[in-house]
Design a protein around this nucleic acid. Structure first.
Lengths: 221, 221
DNA sequence: AATAATTTTTAGATTAACCTAAAAATTTAA
DNA sequence: TTAAATTTTTAGGTTAATCTAAAAATTATT
């Protein structure tokens, strides 16, 4: 069945909201992410339900059906592959690629997506450390920790971010916090839970709790 | 001013028709290429004229304005760069890339287009031999001849095609007629203007006038 | 030059995606 | 457990791009 860009974006947004909770997704939550009004969302949810991509009971919120989940994952796959392409092959910075990938994710060609995947070497994660679903829509489970949850004097490796807004990514770049960096937590300040952390064995720098919360790491031995 | 995919496609079609003639372009001609009805075209032409992208007088046909021409050339540039990307980097055949490039040509990011151009080595032509407009919208003038216009016993090089339908390209591939091939015209048959041509110094093959008309060549010394 | 044929435009609808304002349902709080 | 607050839906419109059918203009033909 044919699908429009708008329908794809709704499915993507419902998918994103569903990752954070096992509850049904509210009309208002969708409206906020779609930057539209609740009334418009109601219209669209009814349409998506008619097409069998979501389960929706009025006033009760919405969830993706199995088929809707499959579509959403294929969009996420395309988005993340294109982001990696833009960074690795075209030389963009990780904070510049989101808007362009929002467009590229709607290009329709399974052949192209799979060739792109191969061209990039069947990558597991995008430039923000987010996992890339494979051809069959399977998401590799990465299970990373938030830097804010790591105990003092532990060492870990920066694997991703929990938020990929341009301003946040630019801040990380300024602080020299890049994907793969080795982070050694020197001290956690009780006052505001800010931390001192050494990046790749250089002199420790100061990081706010807010920043640490959005950094994903793998704990090293 | 914002532009929709549909508007871009109309400008592209008007541009294509304008290349073949210096006359004004008729509503019906646009309708045929856009696969739509004349009434819809009339509506759109009025809208494009309001936006300043075409000059249009009702019943008198349409032409691109300077600004419309600029937009059309930027779309052609993107289309041809993406086609080359698909063939050179992603391993598609030259008859498989048109539909995908029709989608990719609408991706909006000057930065991306220019990086793509650089990544491909600032190419002059796409996989069908069509010239790629540069950043400033300048089309390199290639001035190739049609194979059907070349005299017997001349030698030439296959530089492009005058038509890029998949069926035609597939036929060329079957006949081993690829971009860059050296063609030696052995004989022109008076009966139907079919020709005997040797490809890269192999035994001559028979080619119809219809095929020869759509092959573009550069005459060799 | 008058008529016929063709092309183009106008008029009036349709569909997808959105909106505002008002009504209805649900949730929260007194 | 009612009343108040909030959320969601319905009702009725709007805009972009399309359509069909009828009218108007242009072009071709006798």
């Amino acid at each position: 069945m044919a699908i429009s860009f708008t329908e794809e974006n709704y499915l993507k947004v419902i998918h994103r909201l569903s990752e954070a909770t096992s509850e049904d997704i509210s009309t208002n939550a969708v409206a906020e992410l779609m930057q539209t009004k609740a009334a418009s969302v109601t219209d669209m949810l009814r349409k998506l339900a008619d097409k069998g991509w979501v389960n929706y009971q009025k006033y009760q919120g919405v969830r993706l059906s199995a088929e809707g989940e499959k579509i959403a994952l294929s969009i996420v796959r395309k988005h993340r592959l294109w982001e990696l392409f833009l960074v690795d092959k075209m030389g963009f910075n990780w904070d510049e690629v989101h808007e362009i990938a929002e467009q590229l994710e709607h290009i329709e060609s399974d052949q192209l997506v799979n060739k792109l995947d191969e061209y990039l070497g069947f990558p597991k994660t995008d430039p923000h450390g987010d996992p890339i679903p494979n051809k069959d829509g399977i998401l590799p489970e990465l299970a990373y920790s938030h830097l804010s949850d790591i105990k003092a004097t532990k060492t870990c490796k920066l694997m991703g971010v929990a938020q990929d807004s341009a301003v946040f990514l630019q801040l990380l770049t300024k602080l020299n916090l890049n994907l793969g960096a080795k982070l050694a937590i020197k001290e956690i300040n009780e006052f505001d839970r800010s931390i001192f952390v050494s990046i790749n064995d250089t002199a420790p720098i100061f990081i706010s709790h807010e920043v640490a919360k959005n950094i994903l790491v793998k704990i090293l031995a």
